[in-house]
Write a protein that binds this DNA or RNA. Structure first.
Lengths: 340, 340
DNA sequence: ACTGGCACTCACTCACGACGAGTGCCAGCC
DNA sequence: GGCTGGCACTCGTCGTGAGTGAGTGCCAGT
């Protein structure tokens, strides 16, 4: 495939111009705006090749060229260097995140910040329970047969759950239960808890067995298996900027719907194991409703560990270098904050 | 003002037809679809009067009539009876809400249900802290100088906060603090706590005074004064159904923006003191960005008390009787659930 | 291998006329 | 007095058709 340097340069120019103007770009405009050193005719020939290879296409027979998903992909992979953040952006990030008082606050600020900087829809996953470790477990009697089970994780997340006990329990028993649970589970990653808590039930004293069993099943069921991941979302209104064209076609509806489905959004972060940014362009998305968009996502967490994902959803026609840089930067800062 | 019964009937017919078809309704179509018993010409005369009074208007000189905000207002106040829910809807509500495991779940289910039934954007305010009473306070040592303060309210809401203590405290002290706090505050409405906790500091023993003071200030500051009200939102995608006309005009943007601002949304519930539904139509909204929409809101809570608000935001052109009925019904069911 | 020239395509804009839904008004009727 | 049928008028919508211009593909020339 004859993709010499100049053709790649042409592709880059097309992507950049199209992202900037949102309009199909023609050969003449290209040579005017970029120092390609060749004539429009030559560029046209290159364009013909690029089109044949599926990197660009013409919306109409006699219009300029527009990058295809594949074109963006090539651009992202080989033609763009990640833009370093401007000092102003760095400062904005720091100022915005400093002063967050708790985990909720950090997540909320992060998601708003991301939406604001990228002018896109931002999604931040709360530190995943399964990847966190137990810092403390607390049992709070609510009535004689009801306990509140509170779990605090090392990422600062707090989960609580009311537990209906099979029968009344004495304060002493509760103290004992609390002691046992903490002795066994503190410091343990949530993923690793199931075998441990099973052992707890078996070793429990006869009269406390039923209670312990109830507690454990609640723990497993609600806190581990059905690890309800929470999400924060911001910048939905930026979707309205996607271009009036897309609006009237009704393309907005499915996107908004997808953004409301937590289950769907969580899929975006299924595979963020590392801190490297991942870009899914248009058709590359597994979520069908997001095929008209691109998703830039990354993991975050203290140090090198990943406790959750964050990212943005926007039109395929977006400023990839800038967006990737911003997402990465915000993720890094949030990770630092989690390290306290 | 010559608003006899027939003219009102005409207005009602216009509102109903317009809501159903989303198109300006003309005199001929009106007499065909409704048994008004008069000719189109007569209806035209009535329409002229209605227009003069500001209840309807013509989008163009030669088009049908469309209700104005004032017209909707009259319709809601005097021309519509609240539609009783269909048995299917009742069942849907019950089935959907039953099986909620905790407060979070109730709120989430309620908001989704509301969005689904009304096909509008739904908002549910979490039971307000200030209107709830303390059920239990718990202190959990996280480290020697850090405590987790957990508060459980009678509406099932749980708030927690990490407190940095001025110095290390002994387990005994914590037990004592816990006892004192609970003895003083359990059963007390949050609004009424400030004077009580002040007394606590004054009566505290010298060596525990600093600790108690810290605790109390955290309590006041974060749990009462800065009573961060939480919200659940659903059905944003229904906005995309507002009509392609409204979409292309860019009217969507400000609405989406308003919906993202929690502060703005909370204003919607500022005045829901009773269980009666409140309808704000178009211009009646204090929130400028929502002037293009109508808001149906109501309070909810166990019994006759109101612990929070819920409602929907939709186009002024909406099915008011049906929507009001649905909002009321969901609020009533949720209120019942909170009564356990 | 690049360039200038040229014919061609086709979306977009605008003007024009036909159409028709809907209105306001008026004279007549009950 | 209130209702009705008739009628002229308005004006938005739709379809047609010509003009325009950006942009292309191809080819012959350098």
């Amino acid at each position: 495939m004859g993709l010499d340097d100049r053709k790649l340069e042409v592709l880059r120019a097309i992507v950049e111009d199209y992202v900037a103007t949102q309009e199909p770009v023609g050969s003449k405009a290209l040579v005017e705006r970029h120092a390609l050193g060749v004539s429009p005719a030559t560029v046209r020939n290159d364009m013909a090749v690029l089109e044949e290879e599926g990197f660009i296409r013409q919306p109409h027979t006699s219009a300029g060229r527009v990058p295809t998903d594949r074109g963006y992909r090539l651009f992202v992979d080989r033609l763009s260097r990640v833009k370093p953040l401007s000092p102003a952006e760095r400062r904005a990030i720091e100022r915005f995140l400093v002063g967050a008082v708790d985990l909720d606050d950090v997540v909320h600020r992060a998601v708003r910040l991301l939406a604001q900087l990228t002018r896109q829809v931002a999604v931040v996953q709360y530190p995943s329970l399964t990847r966190s470790a137990v810092r403390h477990l607390e049992l709070v009697p609510v009535s004689t047969t009801r306990l509140l089970l509170v779990m605090i994780t090392d990422t600062g997340r707090v989960e609580q759950r009311v537990v209906e006990l099979p029968g009344p329990v004495e304060p002493d028993e509760i103290t004992e239960l609390r002691r046992t649970l903490n002795a066994t589970l503190v410091g343990v990653k949530l993923v690793d808890t199931p075998p441990l808590v099973q052992g707890l039930v078996e070793r429990a004293e006869p009269q406390g067995k039923a209670t312990m069993s109830t507690l454990v099943s609640v723990l497993l069921e609600t806190l581990v298996e059905r690890h309800e991941e929470r999400l924060a979302l911001a910048g939905t209104s930026n979707l309205a900027r996607m271009g009036p064209l897309d609006l009237s076609t009704g393309a907005l509806r499915p996107i908004l719907e997808a953004l409301e489905e937590e289950v769907i959004l969580l899929k975006l972060f299924d595979e963020v194991k590392s801190g490297a940014a991942r870009v899914r362009i248009g058709d590359e998305n597994e979520v069908v409703d997001l095929r008209a968009t691109s998703v830039v996502s990354t993991g975050y967490g203290p140090g090198a560990t990943v406790v959750g994902g964050m990212g943005i959803v926007g039109p395929t026609r977006m400023d990839y270098p800038g967006t990737i840089a911003t997402v990465r930067a915000v993720a890094r800062y949030v990770g630092e904050m989690l390290g306290h």
